[in-house]
Design a binder for these strands. Structure first.
Lengths: 208, 208, 208, 208
DNA sequence: TATGAATGAGGCTTCATTCAT
DNA sequence: GATGAATGAAGCCTCATTCAT
């Protein structure tokens, strides 16, 4: 009996996962607005009605995808954040790590971007994602500013927002360069723009 | 007779402008996808059918708005671009100038962002806007790199893209700080991140 | 003063004629349903509003075109009808004459055919055209039947309808043969089908 | 499970048939252009949206109706065509048979007639219907001409077109006589008009 | 009288959501 | 729980008609 329930649960879980996966793919390729629930369910090879056994709306799927991503991000970032090192190094690590995660979940970015586009709940999506993301960066930057490692003539928020912007837009870059490498270069510029005094980039040529 | 025609033409022009204005406002407050033509025409205080006396579709309005903005931008930027000065100064001027223009046309930004959403026309919009925008920045950055004023271990494109990203995302900033000031600070960071050797930010305090 | 009025009337007349001509052309090339009033007035090189100075609706134009054609037909047919000759000869003459008229007013046929298609008044159109057409043929056929020149085991109406049908459909023939020649051949068959005894076609080979 | 599917499929089939039937009725009574999809679905007692679960457009319904009719016609005509008999008899049989079929599907005629009206698809309809129709008549007539049973001073095409025209226009006859009887009489005239020498109608009185 | 911009009714189509099976 | 047909609200667009100039 326990097994049966477990099997059923697994099946239910599978259907749910299939829908999430299909939704992510459709969102990524066609965009959120252009994806209908029928599209998702066809991609998932399931009946339309089944959708409503698992989600209340397309936005709900979005929120779930965002939440999942956020949980992954929190986990990874927590691992990195525990290491004790200089703020620039730490920030760089976090950025690289985030880039990797996002690279593996590209579908989520259009959602960020369409946040301003789509109806009801976009703020929720943003809020679902941000905590593990924005707050950590805020913390690192603030620490760096307090320690005198980062400039403090620019508000922490602004710097954090700038990092955010790098991720958002790079996801849609049409340059030949890879996503992660693209991010790496931009973060280098940003770091050089906020690092205080020592360790200037023009002295560290070739270090990457 | 001539007067009559002139009067009518004036009215026609006004109606067109009313629609454009209403569309811009609606796009800005509700986003492009969430704005129906009925919305626009209600905001413009005109009948729905009237819309089609002036535009073929919502996308058409968008393109027109984009084109108008682009023309404004080209004009302003040309004025700035003619001044002979150091590349960092020139870039800063252009950025400030662009920020001002965008600030006065915030509605256009969602369109940039929705580029990834609506497969059909948004590329046209992007292309409508870009020429006066991206290419000028490319040119200034390249000049700076050739003159040894900007770092050259990062491709011109990447830097240009980073500037682009600043505009895109700052438009949706929820920080208390004003749009133009926000841009100014980020550009400062960026400039410090790409300027070569001398003229570091920590020596230029207060000039900002 | 009299001249002025006359001039005005002539001008009015010209506008009206221009509209009728343009409408006929549009109806012929695009069909009645696919022709909008705006289309007509653009083809007529006149303002849309002007239309309503002369006609109440598109159907009204149709009726007028039909009426004009009918008047032409009546006139021509009367000329023919007065000649005293055998019924088959008379019928043939009328048919040829009608074919010529229709050939010069092809636009009117689609209207007949669309009679079953279009809304309100199609019967009126049919009725506008028929009198000079159908009644004359009826009369000739009846006379032929009474004189024993035409078979009388088929109602007059049926024969008349058959003639009617020849005109209707031949207008849209896609055969290489010309409209008038096509009609001539069909009328030949029909005449041979209704002529009594003597004068069979297989004895009149080569006479056309 | 299999039963459930079967039940649903049956219902689906029924809905489709209901729509086709309703469309046919509406097309027949109001004409194609004057029938809106809302009209059809109201007649079918179904929601408007349901239409699009079965057809892509009004034209699509039309094509389907035409295709169905054509298949019926092909079948019936094949049966007739196999009989070995004189060409006039065969042609007569085919005509009667066709008349019966058309009489049961009157709605399709307006479609033929609207062929000249709606530029897009009607040719497809015509083409959908023709193969089983025109080609068979062509063949019979040609055979008759080759055998010396039919006159050959008139092209096969013309005769075939004349038959075609009889069906087209008789469908809209307003005479008291029934459709099939009307056709029968006209075909008699036509046959007598094309039959060679012997077997003249005035010798076959009473047989019709 | 000529004009053409303004209008809104009406048609087409999409799609999120429901519900009977 | 899974299904997919049914639904109607809502958006897009056309066009006959009106009316101020």
């Amino acid at each position: 009996m326990a097994e049966k329930i477990s099997l059923r649960k697994r099946k239910k879980f599978q259907a749910r996962q299939k829908i999430l996966l299909a939704a992510a793919q459709q969102f990524e390729t066609q965009g959120f607005a252009n994806t209908s629930i029928a599209d998702i369910m066809q991609a998932a090879n399931l009946g339309v009605g089944t959708f409503y056994n698992y989600f209340r709306s397309k936005e709900d799927v979005l929120l779930t995808l965002a939440k999942n991503l956020r949980e992954d991000m929190e986990e990874k970032i927590l691992q990195v954040g525990e290491v004790n090192q200089s703020s620039p190094e730490l920030l760089k690590l976090c950025c690289v790590c985030t880039a990797k995660l996002i690279d593996e979940n590209r579908f989520i970015l259009p959602l960020f971007l369409s946040a301003s586009e789509h109806s009801d709940k976009p703020e929720q999506i943003s809020e679902s994602l941000s905590p593990g993301f924005k707050e950590l960066f805020d913390k690192i930057i603030l620490r760096g500013q307090e320690r005198g490692e980062f400039r403090d003539d620019v508000p922490t928020n602004i710097i954090s927002e700038m990092i955010h912007s790098i991720y958002q837009t790079t996801a849609f870059s049409k340059l030949e360069i890879s996503f992660q490498e693209n991010i790496r270069l931009k973060v280098k510029i940003l770091l050089d723009g906020i690092k205080k005094g020592k360790g200037r980039w023009d002295k560290g040529k070739g270090q990457g």
